[in-house]
Nucleic acid binder design. Structure first.
Lengths: 190, 190
DNA sequence: GATTTAAGTTGCGAATCGCTACCTAAAAGA
DNA sequence: TCTTTTAGGTAGCGATTCGCAACTTAAATC
């Protein structure tokens, strides 16, 4: 019943071609990266769709069922899983004790940027899918912008502007960072 | 062998409780949202991990294998899938015709914000996972900021500031947008 | 009391996943 | 040349997961 992305222990070659480029290599599959953790919950096939439904104001079992077209047992399983991971909160209604509400927690709401980034990517590459209901800012009724990567000073930053660095070296202008050239970006770590 | 998130056709109740709140309801599961499209590829269990490895400079079959700890046939399947969807590009090396390189396309690189958002979420809620190698801006060696949602004028915007609106209504200050109060946000659609 | 509704649980066949072993073509070594 | 190694896969098998349909339970409603 567990997703089992399972943090891998026996890494065959710890060095790989890392030393060749003289830069840090993030240990893939190790647990010092948040991605496997996130994927343990949200990597399940229906998790993001359930999250989207919850953000749409769907709270009840049968409504999820109708909105998503998911199988009953799978929905049951997913909801329990999301509750276990603190993304949804299960609450029995007081006025009708048959009813159960699944509400997003703050942890669940905090997945919104990830979901929007995925959705925007899907729109961009999904053969003219303009996605009619637009997400707008309440204040001025204007659509929100694309999810972007930002530098510390809010500049929009691109793939080629990025580099990995050890946490101890961030402040210091040492190592091979802050160099002049674009230096070919051999292995962008993320 | 196909992922088969399969856009659902027989939606039982097209109205649901939508009309009650007097606001637009985005058709969940319909194809006017980019999320199911994105999930069709990236919803597979290993897709994001493979993407991360590719961003780390892993290009070859055996390197993915060692870095991820994935099964051979599954890796083979996933790589083919990602190539089919234009996220990776398969290229036979000229100097050693045994070797095949899987390189990210622009479409693949464009998944970086989604991946970072997921990763940052995993870091935030993953019990003190500081994630040592830090992604920094090449120019000043400072870490990039968190992935955030932005209004059209670059203001960071939160969940409660958002609302769904029909595309035809975005410019006009009509409907119930731009109203004074926070009006309780009954069903945030996303 | 009978029926309906909400939220599941159970059983079954089909598809998917992970593991191990095998395969093929090209390169390297003796 | 002949053997071995390397790179990139397939094939087979058991375990798990998914989707579908039927059944269950408890509470509300008629």
């Amino acid at each position: 019943m567990q997703p089992k992305i399972e943090i891998i222990s026996p890494r065959p070659d710890p060095a790989l071609d890392c030393a060749a480029m003289g830069k840090l290599r993030e240990p893939l599959g190790a647990d010092d990266c948040g991605l496997p953790l996130a994927l343990e919950v949200m990597g399940e096939r229906w998790s993001f769709m359930i999250l989207r439904a919850a953000l749409n104001g769907v709270y009840h079992f049968e409504d999820f069922l109708g909105a998503l077209g998911i199988a009953r047992n799978i929905l049951s399983n997913r909801l329990a899983n999301l509750v276990t991971h603190g993304i949804l909160q299960r609450e029995q209604m007081a006025d009708d004790r048959r009813k159960v509400e699944y509400r997003l927690t703050q942890k669940g709401v905090d997945l919104l940027p990830a979901m929007l980034a995925l959705r925007q990517w899907g729109e961009k590459y999904g053969l003219g899918v303009p996605s009619n209901p637009v997400l707008v800012d309440k204040r001025d009724c204007l659509p929100i912008g694309p999810i972007t990567m930002r530098a510390h000073d809010d500049r929009v930053i691109a793939y080629d502007d990025l580099q990995w660095l050890d946490r101890d070296e961030v402040g210091k202008a040492g190592s091979d960072c802050c160099g002049p050239g674009p230096e070919e970006l051999p292995g962008l770590r993320v």
